[in-house]
Design a protein around this nucleic acid. Structure first.
Lengths: 134, 134
DNA sequence: CGGTATCCAATAAGATACTG
DNA sequence: CAGTATCTTATTGGATACCG
């Protein structure tokens, strides 16, 4: 197998280097809620409350905090809308944010197709237990 | 924009659900070293020491621990080889592990192309500081 | 509704030392 | 060389309460 072109490119802005900025970003994308929020916004913008309900398990704190980070990166944009006396805030992907969706969905699809095999493999691995003193 | 087919599929094994197994896996993949190790193994198998040197910043502990997790999932396989009196252990991707590489590299490529813009956007965002009491 | 502030728990990760 | 064990620190995430 030859070296993948993207991997070859990586040798210049080397992700394997400690001070690679992209490595920082990758770590951010890997945080518990980031990709989930981006994927949740993939089809259309959502209001804060909608996201809170759609993404089970996320707290207001984490949702707000993560949206703030994504906004700072320019992946997500806020829009306040007035409804009578209440203000609702709608979040949507920017063009840059949208450009990430396709890649994330590919990983998601992979996860959905491979999770079962991975988990059963893991169980078999544990039963072997040649690596634990039990 | 219509709902992406993958996202539509997701409605069944719903990633937005708290007990979605794929969500757990996705979180695992997002941990600090997992994707980096898989990408590092993309072109060819590596010995433990090679990985330790290639992936800057990783400690022996984290490398061993993460490799153990990937092995348990069946994404990575170990092979011990005898060289005279010393034993070297070579790690390589399984077929399943290889099937993940392409998706990961797409995200990596995106990160490398967008990191600069994101970081400068973030700096501008901080300067605005309309969200901090300073 | 859409947040913030504060405090606390869980987990991930790092340093260091030791082993076959 | 390729780890493991132990301890400590850093980072994340969650619960709760309060605010405009």
């Amino acid at each position: 197998m030859s070296i993948h072109p993207i991997l070859a490119d990586a040798a210049e802005t080397d992700v394997f280097t400690v001070d690679c900025p992209a490595r920082e970003i990758l770590n951010r994308l890997g945080s518990k809620w980031v990709s989930l929020i981006i994927v949740a916004l993939a089809d259309r913008p959502h209001y804060f409350g909608e996201l809170l309900k759609r993404i089970e398990g996320v707290s207001k704190k984490m949702l707000a905090q993560t949206l703030r980070i994504l906004e700072s990166y320019g992946l997500v944009e806020r829009e306040s809308k007035i409804f009578g006396s209440v203000v609702k805030v709608r979040y949507g992907l920017t063009e840059q944010g949208t450009s990430l969706v396709e890649s994330l969905l590919t990983v998601y699809a992979w996860a959905q197709q491979n999770t079962e095999a991975m988990l059963s493999n893991q169980e078999a691995y544990r039963r072997t237990a040649s690596h634990r003193g039990e």
